[in-house]
């Protein structure tokens, strides 16, 4: 059994959504809507309704980043301040809260942003070799549905694509 990839290009969102609807309605046995990878030039506002809920961990990572920024920021500042060989504050607290609040705030934002970006890069699976099944048309104005399935599903999937007016169908057998 070989893993195959198949990609169907559609001229508009409606056709592609219709095709996804077909997969949803179990037109092809063994293929569900969760196997669908949907490629588009923009994010269609209704995409969540079509594909069903697909979670994202990014907000959680951001929260971790914010918490880390606050704790690390404050501890870093406080330890640095109490570590001065010579205390420069004549008569004022060694760990001054007002200025530390300001700096901790900045650190919170910095680490939240950094964590978010790192999470984005990991969860979107960027930095990987691009799969060969890619159409430049997706960057322009066409949308595509991609599957990575066993060889036996290829033909029925192709059939669904054709039924829904796919502009082009590409497939690739993985070696």
């Amino acid at each position: 059994m070989k893993k195959c990839r198949i990609l169907g290009l559609f001229g508009n969102f409606d056709d592609a959504f219709a095709a996804i609807g077909d997969f949803k309605n179990k037109k092809v046995d063994g293929i569900t809507v969760d196997d669908v990878t949907f490629l588009s030039p923009i994010e269609h506002p209704d995409i969540d309704d079509v594909l069903g809920p697909r979670p994202s961990v990014i907000p959680k990572v951001t929260l971790c980043g914010a918490a880390f920024g606050i704790t690390f920021g404050f501890l870093f500042l406080a330890s640095a301040q109490s570590n001065f060989l010579i205390q420069p504050q004549g008569g004022k607290p060694v760990v001054p809260l007002p200025s530390n609040i300001v700096l901790t705030y900045e650190m919170m934002i910095l680490f939240s942003v950094l964590f978010t970006v790192v999470a984005f890069l990991i969860t979107t699976r960027l930095f990987r070799k691009r799969k060969s099944l890619y159409s430049e048309k997706v960057g322009i104005d066409q949308v595509a549905i991609e599957f990575e399935v066993d060889e036996k599903y290829i033909d029925p999937i192709k059939g669904v694509f054709k039924d829904n007016h796919a502009v082009e169908v590409r497939e690739e057998v993985q070696s």
Partner: peptide
């Protein structure tokens, strides 16, 4: 730059 320094500073701060 050491723990004792940190503790000294802290106790001085407390005292203050």
């Amino acid at each position: 730059m050491s723990l004792s320094n940190l503790i000294d500073d802290w106790s001085r701060y407390r005292k203050g």
